[in-house]
Simulated assay, not measured.
Amino acid sequence: MITLTFVQPDDSRTQIQASSGANLMEVAVAHGIDGILADCGGNLVCGTCHVVVPERFQALLPEQSDMERDMLDCVPFPQPYTRLCCQITLEAAHDGLELQIPLVQR
């Protein structure tokens, strides 16, 4: 199992367990993570599942596609390490991943 921690804007944390091969957005929605709206259901057209991934975890993530980069240009107040969690398939190497929920998604 992979342990993930979602950090809310008020610094409260929710830790969940997920399986390798699972889609990060689907896992967050299934666990009721506040701030992961996922309005488009993971179709890469809304940006409401964006999260900020701390720099130390960036090397563990797949490279962004052109479509993801284009969508991230449209999210409110994108940050250097903003990603769409619908584009991340979890792997064993992601164990311990921390994801910050942007204030603007609430």
Rank of each mutant, 00 (worst) to 15 (best):
L37I: 14
P9S: 06
A38G: 06
D73M: 12
A59K: 14
P80E: 13
M25L: 13
Q58I: 14
H50W: 04
C49D: 12
N43W: 00
P76T: 05
R13I: 00
T5Y: 01
E55R: 15
P54Q: 10
I88H: 01
Q105A: 08
A59P: 12
C85T: 13
P80C: 02
V7C: 04
Y81R: 11
L103P: 10
P102W: 07
Q15E: 13
Q64N: 12
G47R: 02
Q17A: 13
N43D: 02
D70A: 15
Q100W: 14
A28R: 03
D66P: 01
V51I: 15
V29M: 05
V75D: 12
V52Q: 13
M1V: 10
L90E: 03
P102V: 14
P78D: 09
I2G: 00
H50R: 09
V75N: 12
T82P: 02
D70Q: 13
A30I: 02
T48C: 06
G35F: 02
Q79M: 13
T48H: 09
A38L: 02
L61H: 07
G35P: 06
R56V: 06
T5E: 09
Y81L: 01
I16S: 04
A30P: 05
Q105P: 02
T89A: 11
T3A: 06
T14R: 11
G41L: 11
Q100N: 14
T48I: 07
A92E: 15
F57M: 04
H31F: 04
A28K: 09
A28V: 06
L4P: 05
